[in-house]
Simulated scan of single mutants.
Amino acid sequence: MSCCITFSKRCICFIDQINEWIGKSVAWLTLGMVLVTFVIVVLRYAFDLGWVSLQESVAYMHALVFMLGAAYTLKHDRHVRVDIFYQRCGAKTRAWIDCLGSLLLLLPVSVFIIWSSWEYVADSWRILEGSRNSGGLPGLFLLKSCIIVMAVLLILQGLAQFVRNLLIALGQNSREAQ
């Protein structure tokens, strides 16, 4: 049993590290969005210039921040939660609630996202889809692939959260599990 717990904690740590790295990396895109938006505004109003690709790059960055940052948000418990009863519960009860939430909500929804978007993404890859706008960015198929990447990262983080909370609910050392 101790060997399984040690292996579980290593897996949790590995998944947490992946999502931590991805989350911190894509966070820099928010700075990029601000800077590119500033450039777009200056070019448009000061020089009467504009490029579709520049405008689309802001939308691409915005999509990447939300899709690739979702698991990071879950890891840091910053997702939307109704805390009416949850905040009053003890640590073990909260851990059981989180386990059930992962099993009954997060994991099925993430699997559904993969299942329902698979054809959409595959069709985009088949034609190597780019922007529909003249002068737009190529590689829309890569951006659409992030839908599946997001769901996979959420599944991994959901499993890590589930195991972490299960260890807490079963009375294992919660400090090591986190």
Rank of each mutant, 00 (worst) to 15 (best):
69 G>L: 09
28 W>I: 07
42 V>W: 03
75 K>P: 07
116 S>A: 13
5 I>C: 04
138 P>C: 01
51 W>D: 15
76 H>M: 08
33 M>G: 06
127 I>G: 09
57 S>A: 13
46 A>P: 01
103 L>D: 01
95 A>G: 06
131 S>V: 04
87 Q>N: 13
13 C>H: 15
100 L>M: 08
85 F>T: 11
95 A>S: 10
149 V>T: 10
94 R>V: 04
65 V>M: 08
52 V>C: 11
49 L>F: 06
51 W>C: 11
133 N>I: 10
97 I>T: 12
105 L>H: 09
26 V>Q: 07
45 Y>S: 03
136 G>M: 01
27 A>C: 07
166 L>G: 11
55 Q>H: 14
4 C>E: 12
4 C>A: 12
35 L>G: 03
62 H>F: 15
165 N>L: 00
40 I>E: 05
73 T>Y: 04
64 L>E: 15
41 V>P: 02
23 G>E: 05
81 R>W: 13
52 V>I: 15
113 I>G: 04
106 L>M: 09
98 D>C: 02
54 L>S: 15
75 K>C: 08
169 A>N: 05
82 V>Y: 14
141 F>V: 05
42 V>T: 07
177 A>R: 00
107 L>S: 09
93 T>I: 10
174 S>A: 12
131 S>H: 05
158 G>H: 01
127 I>Y: 12
136 G>H: 03
45 Y>M: 00
143 L>D: 04
75 K>H: 10
45 Y>C: 00
29 L>G: 04
19 N>T: 05
88 R>T: 13
85 F>D: 11
74 L>S: 05
79 H>I: 13
84 I>K: 12
118 W>Q: 06
65 V>N: 10
31 L>K: 11
128 L>D: 03
112 F>L: 14
37 T>Q: 09
152 V>N: 00
172 Q>G: 07
71 A>D: 08
50 G>V: 06
70 A>D: 02
60 Y>L: 09
7 F>W: 14
48 D>G: 06
73 T>I: 11
85 F>Y: 15
131 S>D: 07
113 I>Y: 11
95 A>L: 03
21 W>P: 00
89 C>R: 12
63 A>K: 13
24 K>A: 03
11 C>L: 14
16 D>A: 07
72 Y>P: 07
72 Y>Q: 06
41 V>W: 03
129 E>C: 00
106 L>Y: 03
21 W>G: 08
42 V>G: 01
41 V>K: 05
11 C>R: 07
143 L>C: 05
86 Y>Q: 03
10 R>H: 12
25 S>N: 07
105 L>T: 12
101 G>Q: 02
32 G>W: 02
82 V>N: 11
122 A>M: 10
65 V>A: 08
94 R>C: 08
69 G>I: 05
175 R>P: 00
134 S>A: 14
106 L>A: 11
97 I>Y: 08
140 L>P: 02
44 R>T: 11
31 L>D: 07
56 E>L: 09
64 L>W: 15
157 Q>M: 00
26 V>F: 12
163 V>K: 03
36 V>Q: 06
80 V>E: 10
108 P>Q: 06
167 L>G: 11
86 Y>R: 07
131 S>G: 04
110 S>I: 02
105 L>G: 13
